[in-house]
Structures are given as structure tokens and as C-alpha cells.
């Protein structure tokens, strides 16, 4: 996966860090403190294969992530991983869905332009004939109070 580029950012005022993901891949991440508000009444919908590679996105996903659909399809879902998010949150997600259960959580996502947006995410395993064949993730507008709680909690989980 490509490193983020300063020319893609919405602001010159950014921070830089390197993230390493569960599969050993590393990526240079550039991020700003510019928040994009979740659009009222919308749902962000995506599907991934069993390895977490994006196979389907809806228009709201494209809008909120700042990427084009072509840039998203075929990429690992961790293209949205914000350095604020503790790895433990995602370990819990994978553990839950691999047990064929539904996972819920509040997530701070990274945009292509370095900004961020908070979501309330639900991920379910898609079962066909008893086997998990893919995952569906639906993100919706989160509670302001719950986001405030996560902003306190997440930094303690590293």
C-alpha cells in the first residue's frame, strides 16, 4: 500500500507517523485535525473478502473517505486506519467476526486528505450455506456523547 502524500492533504498543518498492520504491511500516514461531519440520514456500506480487501463500496463511503471507488476496490480496509485508533479495537473486531458474530464499535477513520470522521460501525460475517464468504460493514452517524467517551478511552488502550 502506498504511503500518504503531502500533496493529497487538505492542510499543510499535519502530523506524520508509520502504522504497521496485522499482515506486516507498513504505511506512512499523514494526518490533520480537520473533521468531516457524518452526513445526516446516510449509511456507509462496504464489503470485504475474508482477508479484509474491499470488494464493494457505496457512494457515501466514497464521499466520506475522499478516495474514488477505483482507488478503494482491491485495497485492504485498513486504508482507513487512523493512528488514534488502538490496534486492540481491531483485534477484537476480527476475533468477533471470525466467531461468526456481529461486531459494533465507535471508530475514528482516516480520510485520503488526512482528515478524519467518526462512525458507529457494525460488521457482520456474510454466511452462505453455513460458510463465511465475506464481511459487510455498515457505518452510521455516532452519538456525540459516545464519541467523547471514546476520545478519553482509546489513548489508554495502546
Amino acid at each position: 500500500m502506498q504511503n500518504m502524500k503531502p500533496e493529497d492533504l487538505a492542510s499543510d498543518n499535519y502530523q506524520e507517523t508509520e502504522l504497521t498492520f496485522f499482515d506486516g504491511t507498513s504505511r506512512k500516514v499523514l494526518y490533520t485535525d480537520i473533521e468531516t461531519q457524518f452526513p445526516d440520514g446516510c449509511l456507509i456500506v462496504s464489503r470485504t473478502d475474508l482477508d479484509g480487501v474491499i470488494t464493494h463500496v457505496n457512494k457515501s463511503f466514497v464521499l466520506m473517505s475522499g478516495f474514488t471507488e477505483q482507488e478503494l476496490i482491491g485495497q485492504p480496509h485498513y486504508i482507513l486506519r487512523h493512528p488514534f485508533m488502538p490496534p486492540a479495537a481491531f483485534a477484537g473486531l476480527w476475533k468477533t467476526i471470525q466467531k461468526k458474530e456481529k461486531w459494533h464499535g465507535y471508530v475514528k477513520n482516516l480520510r485520503k486528505d488526512g482528515g478524519f470522521y467518526w462512525v458507529y460501525a457494525t460488521v457482520i460475517p456474510n454466511r452462505r450455506n453455513g460458510e463465511i464468504v465475506s464481511y459487510t460493514s455498515v457505518r452510521r452517524k455516532p452519538s456525540v456523547k459516545k464519541v467523547a467517551e471514546c476520545m478519553e478511552l482509546y489513548p489508554t488502550l495502546f
Binding site: 456481529k102 457482520i124 456474510n126 459487510t136 460493514s137 455498515v138
Partner: peptide, 14 residues
């Protein structure tokens, strides 16, 4: 239909 069902499943109360 399965896609619609999966979507409704993500929206159902916890």
C-alpha cells in the same frame, strides 16, 4: 436478496 438481508442484519437492534 442476501445483500439486503445482511444489510438489515447490521441495522437490527443489538
Amino acid at each position: 436478496a442476501e445483500f439486503l438481508i445482511d444489510l438489515m442484519d447490521t441495522l437490527s437492534p443489538e
